[in-house]
């Protein structure tokens, strides 16, 4: 049962991501952070996430309120216990500077959210399989 931390502030977008994840891998156990601060607290197991698991994958929206998405890879990659967690940025921004910044901070992948849900599911499948393996692998 892979634990996936999903950081996303837009409820609609979060719905689509969760739907896509559930489509590609029903065994995924999603954990939700509604902003950057929550995401960092989760990773640091700070209240109210003291018992939180170490996620197997972080799906990160880039433009997060409170604490910006960029802080997540920055903290993760500089903290030994969580350094190895794959991070996939999933965002509507295809701005070059965001791509570059994300790559620079050690993000594993940068995925632009496709407008067509089908296309989006395809890209989610692609990276979940890459970092979590298939459902069949787990079984």
């Amino acid at each position: 049962m892979p634990d996936v931390l999903i950081a996303e502030d837009d409820p609609a977008a979060l719905h689509l991501t969760l739907k896509a994840l559930s489509i590609v891998n029903s065994r995924i156990r999603p954990h939700i952070a509604r902003n950057g601060a929550e995401a960092l607290a989760f990773l640091r197991r700070q209240a109210p996430y003291t018992g939180a698991p170490k996620p197997d994958l972080i799906v990160l929206d880039w433009n997060l309120p409170k604490v910006h998405g960029r802080e997540v890879p920055a903290v993760t990659r500089s903290t030994d216990a969580i350094r190895d967690i794959p991070i996939v940025v999933v965002t509507t921004s295809d701005a070059e500077k965001d791509r570059e910044e994300a790559a620079h901070l050690g993000v594993n992948e940068y995925v632009v959210k496709a407008p067509h849900f089908r296309d989006f599911v395809a890209s989610v499948r692609d990276f979940t399989e890459r970092y979590l393996g298939t459902e069949q692998d787990e079984e």
Partner: peptide, 21 residues
Amino acid sequence: AYVASHDLQAPLRNIISFSEL
């Protein structure tokens, strides 16, 4: 431009995606 690349596209994507769903 930046806003367009993210903030304009995000709701648009929602419209498209949920319209499809």
